[in-house]
Design a protein around this nucleic acid. Structure first.
Lengths: 344, 344
DNA sequence: AAAAAATGCACAAACGATTGTGCAAATAAA
DNA sequence: TTTATTTGCACAATCGTTTGTGCATTTTTT
């Protein structure tokens, strides 16, 4: 095996050529600069032989393009985000990009810091699943000229392009399923109040009820965030109510896990004692004590489209308004919703 | 808000100083180069005022240090790896490093490509959860002078430093639990045959049996990889056997999910019809149809230690042999193992 | 007061690529 | 044969840092 060559100058010297020529050949610009076929071939062969590949840092400096994309995720340990991250990474790699992964720990301050960090690292673009209600720090980054793509939710009042699930539809379908099964007193444990994904889901829940002439009981909409603990706490509250709901709509996979914990503690079983539908399909959904009916989000598609759009913005500087997309979720029917008497 | 300054030269001009001085102050080298307190203060103030932060690409080029670490994971959608990735990212960030995330898709060829990719991106080090049996491509990277840290398993015959769970102990504990509960015919669905994590677990399984004078039935050790499908297929095979095992030890969280699917299809329930213990604790483990007894790996510790060690190697060029660590797992008792008659 | 030492900072090269332009040599046209 | 055109490549600047060294000026020592 030939000794590795470390930079373009060394390779050029071995070939008796200038770095200019080598660079142009390696970047496929031979034609534009009238490099002869013969020279081109020699350069390419030598590059292989000596295992030369351009230093991407130097390249990035000169080109002001790092072929790197920042990805900010509230919790990469959550398989929902994990699988989105996976698709994004693979999709990016296929286009020559790498992903700088950042976990915002579901914390707005951290998130703001991460955005600055990524800007400092000169990423070509950022994909973010925002954690909080505030969007100032995100738009600021956009105004600094860094292409940003929002996933999982959108940020109202901004022109940040996004790709999300149609959360309203998902919640509508789930709630209608409850209603069809005879439920009237349906609780909704929400995530962060005020962010779009949550608002849309709650709105879907409300709309479904109203469409069927069922009054919305505001005390049945409760919760503070998408975590497990929230699901646990809110469920306990619900169980303490004089008239318990017959069904719980959990707006995230972690919330429903918390709900299950609270129910178990209380010695209640699904769906006999209480029915559940959860947002976010998971590999284990089918194997829970009671196989869970879930709203499945098209995670692969979200990831793929988010990166593709980002790439478009990076390359063509597309007007960002056009890049908004809401994908249809799917309701997966299992056994966690019990059919009950309408009279109930 | 003051206009942003884009490079050190601009900032130096505003201050009437040279880039040299500005750079030295910003890097905390004022003393070494006798920059006056007054000048230092001015520089620091101006840097804040004009929102200047050094271009990390240029810096990386000059210093030959990118403050970037590559992370190669077989499947980031798997929450086991997700939570390891999370700790690593946070730990790295606290030390000024960023993570370039790569998903090897559990494919050796991809993994080899990713290692080259990361080398080309001039990462300061690499943390890898290797996917296959081969370790050539990993040691090659190490020989190129890039610090490498292996997690989740170790690569025998190399001097690649690693931090893993004590897989032998975990499997030993799990199998002994089965035995104590009266099981004698215990199947073991393994992952990739030949990699350390798997071999250690299988060895733990064997040793537990032998310690108790139970002969090892080789046909009860089966399986090809850590995926869900493997768990499904092997379980079906086991169920077709003339004398079914009374217990299944699944060597990964995905395998046990596959096992559950097969059992469900066959109309069998846990633990009445068959007992299970699974490697890898998960948030949902407690809420499965039958709450699962699991072997929990110390994921946070693995991630944290892996990065800390890597940083040591990067900074101090420590001899890598000293950085090996095996952490104790914990057996979490739930209800998936039934007590049966010894006579059985 | 002269010599020595300390103080405070700047020059310019280097990291490894890319690129606008320029300039011979070879070929074609007149 | 002379001029014009094409072919094939190289020079040198540039991206934004960092850093070894050098050089005035001020302060201290003798």
């Amino acid at each position: 095996m030939e000794k590795k060559v470390n930079n373009i100058k060394e390779l050029a010297e071995k070939l008796g050529l200038s770095p200019t020529t080598v660079s142009r050949v390696l970047n496929g610009k031979s034609k534009n600069f009238r490099i002869s076929q013969e020279t081109s071939r020699k350069v390419l062969d030598a590059a292989q032989k000596y295992h030369y590949s351009p230093n991407r840092i130097a390249r990035g400096l000169k080109l002001e393009r790092t072929e790197t994309v920042g990805l900010i995720i509230p919790d990469i340990a959550n398989p929902y985000f994990g699988s989105i991250a996976k698709t994004i990474e693979v999709e990016a790699r296929n286009s020559g990009y790498s992903i700088i992964l950042c976990d915002s720990l579901d914390d707005e301050v951290t998130e703001a810091e991460l955005l600055q960090l990524l800007a400092g690292r000169k990423v070509d673009g950022i994909i973010i699943a925002p954690t909080g209600k505030s969007s100032r720090h995100v738009t600021e980054i956009q105004q600094q000229g860094i292409p940003v793509m929002v996933i999982d939710r959108y940020l109202p009042g901004t022109n940040l392009p996004f790709v999300t699930t149609d959360n309203h539809l998902g919640a509508l379908m789930a709630t209608e399923h409850f209603i069809e099964m005879g439920h009237r007193n349906i609780a909704c444990i929400q995530g962060i109040n005020g962010i779009s994904a949550n608002s849309e889901r709650v709105k879907g829940y409300r709309d479904a009820l109203q469409n069927h002439g069922i009054p919305v009981n505001e005390s049945m909409i409760l919760g503070t965030d998408f975590g497990e603990e929230n699901g646990y706490i809110q469920t306990k509250k619900l169980l303490d109510l004089p008239t318990r709901p017959t069904a719980i709509f959990a707006l995230s996979n972690l919330i429903s896990l918390g709900t299950l914990r609270a129910l178990k503690e209380a010695g209640l079983t699904v769906p006999e004692d209480i029915s559940i539908v959860s947002f976010d399909e998971q590999p284990y959904s089918a194997f829970l004590a009671c196989p869970m009916t879930t709203v499945e989000q098209p995670r692969e598609e979200i990831g793929r489209l988010a990166f593709d759009f980002l790439l478009n913005i990076i390359n063509k500087g597309l007007p960002t308004q056009t890049e908004n997309l809401m994908l249809k979720p799917r309701l997966i029917f299992r056994e966690s919703v019990k059919k009950i008497n309408i009279s109930n």
